[in-house]
Structure formats: structure tokens, C-alpha cells
Amino acid sequence: MTVCLENQTIVLSGTCGVEDVEALVNYLEDRSDLSVDISAATSVHTALWQALMVFKPRIIGSTMSSLIASKLLPALKAYIDKDR
């Protein structure tokens, strides 16, 4: 499972492709209070990033990819915080 619910947290793990976006959106729609943990994800498709930007959950952890961690994540968190 690349998208699953563990201990009241939505966990993304491994390679999260575009096909996983529906599972993520289902969780986010049902439980807007849950956080999303991306620390176990090796790669995350743009569609999933977009879902995170639309639903704006709290994002926990950083990803394996240093570029995403250093450039995208701050931008994403800034975007989410700004709109909150």
C-alpha cells in the first residue's frame, strides 16, 4: 500500500504514482483533520502534491528527495499556511 491509514495518520510510502491520488483524496475528503506523513515516500506524483495543496492537511516529515525537501516542501507549506 502506498497510501494507507496508520495511527490516525495518512501515510504515503514508496513510489506514489498518479493512480494513488484517488485513495489519498478519499482519505482527505473523509477525514480533513488527519495529518499526512510523507517521510516513507520515495517519490510523489504531481497529482498527489496537488491534492495536498487543495485539501491542505498538516504535512509531517520530509521526503527522501533532497530537492523536494529543500525547495518544494517549504513552498508547499508556505502555500498551505498562507491560505489557512
Binding site: S43, T46, W49, S65, L67, K71, L72, Y79
Partner: peptide
Amino acid sequence: LETISRLTDLRYLGV
């Protein structure tokens, strides 16, 4: 996002 992250020397990324 994966595509643009392939650039070797990315100084800023905004989405």
C-alpha cells in the same frame, strides 16, 4: 514537478 526537479541547478521552485 518530477520533470522540473530534473533540472541540475534549481535555485527556486514555487507551486
